[in-house]
Nucleic acid binder design. Structure first.
Length: 348
DNA sequence: TCTGGGGTCCTTACGCAA
DNA sequence: TCTGTTGCGTAAGGACCC
């Protein structure tokens, strides 16, 4: 049986949640961004996007591009709450759902009698119950569905076969498809590949030589909209981290250590509340030249305790030293397992 | 005019054991 | 026993996504 997959994506999600609370802002340029000097834009309303403000634009630049925009600090608790409601509605309509982020999900529709009508009903149900609009893409795999949902935002509804997707996006830049970011796009351009058509038709041996035996074929498959990834129910979280970018760079080792331990305290607090522990403890450092460095240590016994994590991250930071002023520090616990509730139950 | 926070996955290198 | 191969765990960096 041929596959049918949908991708549903809530339009300008964070901004839309804010507009529910402040409907008087509808129609105005609205930007959700942090407040510090180094904050970036999380989401911009479509009115603000007309001024060139997009996700990841530095907030300072956004203010210059669009001085009249209303700036709102992100409220992730509210976004998580609304997301839960929406995904609940999605699950009422479809059995097999992969929640990809707060605002998007893949839906396995294979075997369904009238998938388009079902998706129309789903969008209407979300709108009626939450007031939020969504865009939908439907195709023979997750890749086509994802690109289709993006093609006519907001309130898009695009259904494509694989061949139609290839034809429609043949002239688009390779970066249109997920998995090809700025770095890969630049490397493709360096060998004269500027469109999906060119990538789809490129010599496989050249791609394999440039990008490796795995990535080369993978890039070409994506350009042809070939993809066999399954719609998988939610996977377990395997790492958690806390990090912070300073308003101004910090060189004082004592100050850095204090901040690091604060981050460790936050992280360990959250981990223990969730009953989670991990074996790999790490730190992340971003220097003033924007170079990023990580250091980690794997311990025999999974832990989420500050008494164990604190000294390890402190030692990792001391070993790294302070070769230059730092702009960011982070703490991470990876290799997470679910902590046994009963220590005595451990096998001998 | 500089570049957030929280994640996942991949690649490469290296030491060690079978 | 020596050597080479393979596989695994670990570490570090990097690309990418929302």
């Amino acid at each position: 049986m041929s596959r049918c997959v949908a991708h549903i994506d809530l339009d300008a999600f964070y901004v839309s949640v804010e507009l529910q609370r402040r409907p008087e802002l509808r129609g105005l340029p609205v930007v959700v961004a942090g407040s510090g000097p180094r904050a970036v834009v999380t989401t911009a309303s479509y009115e603000a996007r007309k001024f060139g403000v997009q996700s990841a634009t530095p907030a300072s630049r956004a203010r210059r591009l669009c001085p009249d925009a209303v700036f709102i600090s992100p409220d992730f608790a509210a976004y998580r709450e609304t997301s839960k409601r929406v995904m609940g509605i999605v699950r009422e309509h479809v059995e097999q759902v992969e929640v990809a982020s707060l605002d998007e999900a893949y839906l396995e529709l294979t075997g369904m009698a009238a998938p388009r009508a079902a998706m129309r009903r789903l969008v209407a149900a979300i709108s009626e119950s939450t007031g939020l609009s969504a865009s939908v893409g439907i195709g023979p795999n997750k890749l086509v569905a994802k690109v289709a949902s993006d093609a006519e935002k907001p309130r898009g509804f695009v259904v494509l076969t694989r061949e139609e997707a290839c034809a429609r996006f043949a002239d688009a830049r390779p970066g249109l498809v997920p998995g090809i970011g700025p770095k890969t796009a630049a490397r493709l351009e360096a060998i004269g590949i500027r469109t999906l058509r060119a990538l789809a038709a490129a010599d496989p041996s050249v791609l394999a030589e440039r990008f490796g035996a795995r990535l080369g074929p993978e890039l070409q498959a994506r350009a042809r909209f070939e993809h066999d990834g399954a719609v998988t129910e939610d996977r377990a979280v395997i790492s958690e981290s806390r990090e912070t970018t300073f308003d101004t760079d910090i060189s004082d080792p004592a100050e850095l250590e204090r901040i690091l331990l604060e981050l460790a305290e936050q992280l360990c607090g959250d981990l223990s509340r969730k009953g989670r522990r991990g074996r790999t403890i790490g730190i992340k450092i971003r220097l003033d030249d924007f170079s990023t460095h990580t250091r980690s240590r794997t311990v025999p016994e999974a832990t989420g305790d500050l008494e164990r994590v604190g000294p390890i991250v402190r030692d990792l930071l001391r070993e790294f030293g302070t070769p230059r002023p730092m702009r960011l520090l982070g703490v991470r616990v990876a290799g997470l397992e679910t902590a046994p509730t009963d220590q005595l139950a451990l096998p001998v």
